[in-house]
């Protein structure tokens, strides 16, 4: 799917294909991939990398364009069971146009960040900035989900919530790796700022990106460490909850077993004491009830 935009006079507006200078290819089909390779001279391997979620961020200088791949969080879907994944995004900057290749649907160029864009290199940096901000928001989501899972674990007896926490922990590893990779890309961009045609103002923006990204990295590391460090304690809580349940069930079993024993003892088909007594039934009943009282007293005495 192709989306076309025109960057003109500091504004980015939707446009028709011939006049567009920013083209966004979302999940390009075979025909669009052919066009990217043949018309835009994009290396096939680089194009595949831009669509591969496992690819690391990188920057390459080609003959007529700059190819850049960076990592962005993948939109969460309810089928993913608390696993937050990352995706890749390819940006190809030509002297008078820019291509963006995305492996999945994403909302680009929305919000105040894109209200005023001076040039194509600025748009490129702002796309990375949006991705870093997206990571920040997803880290907040992970933190909120982690808090909610902890509340559930306090009363849980099955592994469902623990497995969800493991998914969150795994997500943070993906995020850390992606943020780290983006950091390396930004550092490389800073080293090659003149080659990228970045003005002094844009180099300052690049510095901001570097700081923002390192803050996200630290945040992800802290969340990951907290989650990993407290995981053992949470496993113990679930195990302890299960022990409490087993204890309660055992007490119930013993409390039922003793009166059953008393009643069955007096139900044997052999001559037994008091079998002809008019109050024999009530006597056996009283004895079985007393056995329940005895169990209760024993448990109270042992403080179980």
């Amino acid at each position: 799917m192709l989306q076309c935009w025109l960057l003109s006079n500091g504004k980015l507006t939707a446009a028709d294909e011939p006049e567009a200078n920013v083209r966004v290819f979302v999940r390009p089909d075979d025909r669009e991939r052919r066009e990217l390779v043949d018309r835009w001279q994009i290396d096939e391997h680089t194009l595949t990398s831009a669509l591969d979620p496992d690819e690391l961020a990188r920057l390459e200088f080609e003959a007529d364009h700059i190819a850049m791949i960076f990592k962005r969080p993948r939109n969460y879907s309810s089928e993913e069971r608390f696993l937050f994944k990352v995706s890749s995004c390819g940006i190809f900057v030509y002297p008078d146009s820019m291509l963006i290749v995305l492996p999945e649907d994403a909302t680009l160029f929305t919000g105040r960040l894109f209200a005023r864009v001076g040039s194509l290199p600025e748009l490129m940096l702002k796309c990375i900035f949006a991705s870093i901000h997206h990571f920040l928001e997803h880290l907040r989501v992970i933190n909120a989900v982690s808090d909610a899972l902890e509340e559930q674990i306090n009363a849980a007896m099955d592994n469902k919530y623990l497995l969800n926490l493991f998914s969150l922990e795994k997500s943070l590893v993906y995020y850390l790796n992606a943020i780290n990779s983006n950091g390396k890309l930004i550092e490389r961009m800073k080293l090659n700022a003149p080659k990228l045609g970045l003005s002094g103002e844009l180099v300052e923006l690049l510095d901001d990106l570097l700081i923002e990204n390192s803050q996200r990295k630290e945040q992800a590391e802290i969340y990951s460490n907290i989650l990993a460090g407290l995981m053992d304690a949470r496993v113990s809580i679930v195990s302890n909850n299960l022990n409490l349940l087993i204890k309660a069930l055992t007490v119930i079993t013993i409390a039922i077993m003793l009166p059953t024993f008393v009643v069955s003892l007096f139900s044997m088909y052999v001559p037994i004491p008091f079998q002809g007594h008019p109050l024999a039934f009530w006597g056996v009943l009283a004895l079985s009830l007393a056995s329940i009282g005895a169990v209760k007293f024993f448990l109270w005495w042992k403080r179980w």
Partner: peptide, 11 residues
Amino acid sequence: HPGGLHARPCV
């Protein structure tokens, strides 16, 4: 919202 009810709106 173009992204639907994804993670951030849910929170």
